[in-house]
Amino acid sequence: MDALKSAGRALIRSPSLAKQSWGGGGRHRKLPENWTDTRETLLEGMLFSLKYLGMTLVEQPKGEELSAAAIKRIVATAKASGKKLQKVTLKVSPRGIILTDNLTNQLIENVSIYRISYCTADKMHDKVFAYIAQSQHNQSLECHAFLCTKRKMAQAVTLTVAQAFKVAFEFWQVSKEEKEKRDKASQEGGDVLGARQDCTPPLKSLVATGNLLDLEETAKAPLSTVSANTTNMDEVPRPQALSGSSVVWELDDGLDEAFSRLAQSRTNPQVLDTGLTAQDMHYAQCLSPVDWDKPDSSGTEQDDLFSF
Rank of each mutant, 00 (worst) to 15 (best):
P295V: 07
R39A: 08
L47V: 11
T158Y: 05
T149H: 13
Y118L: 03
V248S: 10
S265R: 14
A241V: 10
D198E: 07
I132W: 14
L103C: 13
F146H: 01
E64Q: 09
V226R: 08
E178W: 14
D280W: 02
T41C: 14
H28Q: 14
P61V: 14
S224G: 04
I97S: 00
A195F: 01
E301I: 08
K91M: 07
L103G: 13
E250A: 15
S140P: 14
L11A: 06
T274W: 02
D280P: 08
Q86K: 15
N211L: 04
E64I: 12
L4Q: 03
C286E: 09
W292N: 06
S21V: 07
T104Q: 12
D303A: 07
V161L: 10
A7R: 12
F259G: 03
G82L: 14
L11V: 12
D198C: 02
C286F: 05
L57P: 13
S243I: 10
A154L: 01
R73N: 07
A133R: 09
S288L: 07
C286A: 10
D234W: 02
A278Q: 09
L43G: 08
E142Y: 14
D293F: 01
Q187C: 01
A219T: 04
K184Q: 12
K166L: 11
A228I: 11
A284D: 09
D304Q: 06
V192M: 03
D198K: 06
K5L: 14
K87P: 12
W22K: 02
L85H: 01
L11Q: 12
L206A: 12
M124N: 07
S16D: 10
L50V: 05
L42K: 15
I74Y: 01
S135E: 08
S186R: 04
S298K: 05
T56M: 12
R27S: 15
L242A: 13
R29T: 15
H282D: 15
K51N: 02
S117P: 05
S140C: 10
H125R: 00
H144L: 10
M153R: 07
W249A: 09
C119W: 02
P222S: 15
P239T: 10
P237E: 10
K176S: 09
D304P: 07
Q279V: 06
L141V: 07
L53R: 00
V174I: 10
V167Y: 15
L272G: 03
A3V: 11
E65L: 07
E177K: 15
M153Y: 10
D296E: 10
V192Q: 07
L107P: 13
R13D: 12
K294Y: 09
W292A: 03
R261Q: 06
L251V: 08
D252V: 04
E178T: 08
S205I: 07
G190K: 04
N102H: 08
T274N: 04
K30Y: 09
K152I: 06
E109R: 11
A284I: 03
D256H: 14
V157A: 05
M55T: 10
L206Y: 05
K62R: 03
A7H: 15
A195N: 03
D280C: 06
R151K: 05
I108F: 15
G24Q: 08
Q86D: 05
E40A: 10
T200L: 04
V88C: 05
A258Y: 05
W292S: 14
K51D: 03
R266V: 05
L159D: 04
L47I: 03
G23K: 14
Q134K: 13
E65Q: 14
K87A: 09
Q20Y: 15
V290C: 07
P239L: 14
L147I: 02
D273S: 03
E44Q: 06
A18L: 02
T160R: 08
Y118F: 08
D304L: 05
S205C: 04
S16G: 04
K294L: 09
S112E: 04
L287R: 13
L90A: 05
S49A: 12
Q106P: 03
G194Y: 06
N211W: 03
V248G: 08
D234I: 04
G45N: 08
A76E: 09
E178C: 10
T231F: 04
A168Q: 03
G254L: 08
S297N: 13
S245Y: 03
S265E: 13
K51V: 01
T77A: 10
G275M: 04
G189D: 02
R261N: 07
D214Y: 06
R261S: 10
D2H: 02
L212Q: 07
P295D: 01
W292L: 13
E142S: 01
A80Q: 08
C199M: 09
G8T: 11
T38M: 11
D293Y: 06
A195C: 04
R73H: 10
L287C: 03
S49R: 01
R151F: 01
V248F: 15
